[in-house]
Simulated assay, not measured.
Amino acid sequence: MPTALITGITGQDGLYLADLLLAKGYDVHGVVRGQNNPKRELVRRRLPGVRLHTGDLTDLSSLMRALRDARPDEVYNLGAVSFVAYSWDNAHVTTDVTGKGVLNMLEAVRLHAGDDPGRVRFYQASSSEMFGKVQESPQHERTLLWPRSPYGVSKVFGHHMTINYRESYGMHASSGILFNHESPLRGPEFVTRKVTRAAARIALGLQHELVMGNLDARRDWGFAGDYVEAMWLMLQQPVADDYVVATGDTHSVRDLLDVAFRRVGIDDWSALVRQDPAYLRPAEVDALVGDASKAREVLGWRPRVGFEELVAMMVEADLAEQKHLAGS
């Protein structure tokens, strides 16, 4: 039975990845920050087969303990301060966790593996936000990185550190440059979930308007459940490498609003959505769209869930949640 250790297991990607690995027969371990983390119980309820370890990406010794206790064959580093808007308000925390935390995890794995650096396979969750002020479209593995937020800068640091450890120490360390991927498990602070939850609440009479920032930003949105499969496939390859994971299709925030509100029977949302400059980024990333040709050719990976199906899935989940909350 292979063993995997996941940082960030309480997040959207960590939960989907743990589901996938358990279904494949893995012994799955997760790192959770703090003994009293309220999300610890969420993981225990949803994934009773997962063993949890207390650890912190800013504390190398805690990561070493988790590795010693779990003895993993594969490590998936998904832990991060992942909300871009938050990174502007807390750039130092974002840098410590999302940037230097990758270095801590790589160093912990290197020390744990000892004389056989490739013994433990490592996955780093890189991000399309690294492309920022895009220099070409679509973006691929060789596209120049030009991040436009503290989050993006931190991800670039972690990405290049992963490459450095692979080339310097012979570690089997791969990075997945994942474009936006969503699901009903997405946090409500993210734009997709903000929209789908608001559409559900407005349709149920629980909310009267939705306040948004830039409606013209375009993103390449896919389903998180599809994207975690690509993570796993990377660590099954004989040689570590970096891969863009994306659908290749781009949609605007307006498109997102169209699909979400149509799903609840509202064809014209213009009177329900108000733009507020306070929600605009200091440096906007206007459009991101990925070229996942390498992932298709080498990994045999391709997305299964399209944009409209994804948004519909999220709206239906939010309708069910809000009905339950309203009735309780």
Score class of each variant (00 low, 15 high):
G205C: 12
E321N: 13
T98Q: 10
L17T: 01
A295M: 05
D318I: 01
V211M: 04
R219G: 08
Y165L: 02
E129I: 11
D216K: 11
E316P: 02
Y76L: 04
L144P: 09
R46F: 14
Y227A: 15
V253W: 05
H159D: 14
A217T: 13
Y26N: 08
V264N: 00
L111I: 10
I266Q: 02
M130S: 08
L106D: 04
F261R: 02
A246L: 04
Q124S: 11
G8N: 02
P117L: 13
S328Q: 13
N77Y: 14
V81G: 06
V244F: 04
R296V: 13
H172S: 07
S154Q: 00
P184H: 04
D291C: 05
A292T: 06
V305D: 02
R281A: 15
V311M: 02
V264Q: 00
T98E: 14
L21S: 01
P188F: 13
R304W: 13
A271Y: 10
R121C: 05
E309T: 03
P282Y: 09
A246C: 04
T192I: 07
R68W: 13
V75K: 01
W232Q: 09
G152F: 14
D286R: 15
V264D: 00
I9K: 01
P138R: 12
E309D: 14
T143S: 06
W232Y: 09
F223V: 02
H53Y: 09
L272F: 06
D249N: 13
M314H: 08
P188M: 11
D59L: 02
T247L: 10
R186Q: 15
M313R: 08
A283K: 13
E284S: 13
L63I: 08
V191N: 06
D27G: 12
D286A: 15
L57K: 03
R186P: 09
